[in-house]
Design a protein around this nucleic acid. Structure first.
Lengths: 206, 206
DNA sequence: GTCTATAGTTAGATAGAC
DNA sequence: GTCTATCTAACTATAGAC
């Protein structure tokens, strides 16, 4: 027998999952509450029962994505050797792009649209996060452990390169002549990116 | 005195410019013909006079972007030295991301949404283009002119890294603490990317 | 908590005067 | 080629029975 709050948690989760798919495909303004309801196999009125309106549902989805992202990357250690740290980070980012591709695309959609719902997060939490990591890379450079590159653009390079496989998955698959990329492809991608980026920073690849 | 066809050309151009801004911000389904009309400072009915419906207008915008892209990158020479060719390509791509940022974001929006209007282009024209370039990079590797990296993922790395500055402009600016990136920033970005990627392929940076 | 019915609004598109 | 008025369809959101 299900308690009421179990039903609530379960339904909210189902709605969020359906909403991610809808927002991924159509963006915020293009998404339809009716289609979200259909995807979640619930009457439209129930969506409004759990989430007051479209904006609140979208905000919940974004918060979900951001907290997922934080959980995945806040543990990146700053005391590691540069080569290990960067290799681990590229690996984790690609893993994330693969297993959370839909969420990653919702995030991109929001940023491409000018980040109307995330401006504050970008300017506060995310900015501190990057500034901190950039400081560590700068210290590595000062100690001669890595070539003197601009730490911010190294981070953006890793983000751009890894996020590309989530955002541009359709294009990448079309070019590679596959329906979708498999485990094997992602291993090849990881190796390629790790090799070029580490070597590009003056680090030994292995 | 304006001839009829001058008015036609001029209005079509104004509508396309307005449409790019609208599609950039809201995606296809989220865009509103009324807002496009407002941006172009024309009555909504006129938009429908020049473009039969929303889909036709969107398709015109995408064709515009694709032909712009082809014009900018089809001249990339295959006989160049690897270092010169890659440097030139990274440079051109970043230049494009900077001066055609809105168009680049419309394209990304379309791909992120699953490329419903561009699947055919991706599987035919773009695929051939990439296959051809990948072949050249492979030949470079066979001749020992460049380290043996996967040519496809090198191309995707360059695309991802350069496109990031158009698509994620809002996020990059927020992190850098600026309202927008200037000429100086783009020079720094070009240098950073060229250095890491060339070195990463075993090439001399200069 | 669930769901049907519907209110209220706004969208894409067009008819027809100028 | 321009523009007002308007049609039909689709949307968000809610009221109220169960």
């Amino acid at each position: 027998m299900k308690t009421i709050s179990q039903a609530r948690v379960q339904n909210e989760r189902r709605i969020l999952k359906a909403a991610i798919e809808e927002f991924e495909q159509y963006g915020f303004s293009g998404s339809r509450m009716q289609r979200i309801a259909d995807r979640a196999k619930l009457p439209k009125a129930n969506i409004h029962y759990y989430f007051k309106n479209k904006t609140e549902l979208y905000t919940a989805v974004l918060n979900n994505i951001v907290s997922l992202w934080n959980k995945a990357f806040d543990r990146i250690s700053v005391e590691d050797e540069p080569a290990n740290a960067l290799r681990g980070y590229i690996h984790a980012k690609l893993e994330y792009s693969q297993s959370n591709a839909a969420a990653a695309r919702v995030f991109t959609n929001e940023i491409v649209s000018g980040a109307p719902h995330l401006k504050k997060y970008l300017k506060t939490d995310l900015r501190s996060w990057v500034t901190e990591r950039a400081g560590v890379i700068q210290q590595w450079a000062n100690l001669g452990k890595i070539d003197p590159i601009n730490p911010y653009h190294l981070i953006f390079l890793i983000w751009g390169a890894t996020q590309h496989y989530a955002d541009y998955h359709t294009q990448v698959s079309a070019i590679m002549g596959k329906r979708k990329l498999d485990k094997c492809d992602y291993d090849e991608i990881t190796n390629s990116l790790v090799e070029i980026i580490l070597k590009g920073c003056g680090l030994k690849v292995r």
